[in-house]
């Protein structure tokens, strides 16, 4: 596990920043994001709506907390948990052969596929490094 303080702080800023960005673009158009979730055809209309209302704010709060260094481990835990969920979701989507927009970064979104999983894995690596790093290092 990485113990270099500078690197860990960088991880915190990058990962936190990415989550804030991802959250903000979704907050701007909740109905659009709800449709994105619905397109995965895993949950129904109501759950898609609830997720679309809550998830972006969870991303923003965890991202802000991580970047600012407040409740670092808790926010790293939330972010890592979300990333594990996104990776599983993308794998299931690929396995089912669905052609959906990942809905991850607003206008920068692309088809849900391997590329998305690789990005998520990269972010998950940062998240886990932060989650398990010595308290003073992050």
């Amino acid at each position: 596990m990485i113990k270099n303080k500078t690197l860990l702080v960088l991880f915190r800023l990058v990962l936190g920043g990415l989550f804030v960005y991802a959250g903000v673009v979704k907050v701007l158009d909740p109905l659009d994001f709800a449709q994105n979730i619905r397109n995965y055809r895993l949950v129904g209309q109501s759950l898609s709506f609830i997720a679309a209302v809550v998830l972006p704010w969870l991303e923003i709060l965890a991202g802000v907390a991580l970047a600012l260094g407040v409740w670092k481990r808790a926010s790293a835990l939330i972010i890592s948990g979300l990333l594990v969920f996104f990776i599983l979701l993308t794998l299931v989507t690929i396995a089912r052969g669905l052609d959906v927009d990942c809905g991850c970064f607003g206008a920068l979104s692309r088809k849900s596929g391997l590329g998305v999983i690789l990005e998520d894995l990269g972010m998950l690596f940062m998240g886990l490094c932060l989650l398990f790093a010595p308290a003073k290092q992050i």
């Binding site: 998830l55 808790a74 939330i78």
Partner: peptide, 16 residues
């Protein structure tokens, strides 16, 4: 950590 994460989660629900 779990307590704090739950607080962040609850705040997310409220804000949303």
């Amino acid at each position: 950590i779990i307590r704090q994460a739950l607080v962040i989660g609850a705040l997310g629900v409220l804000l949303g």
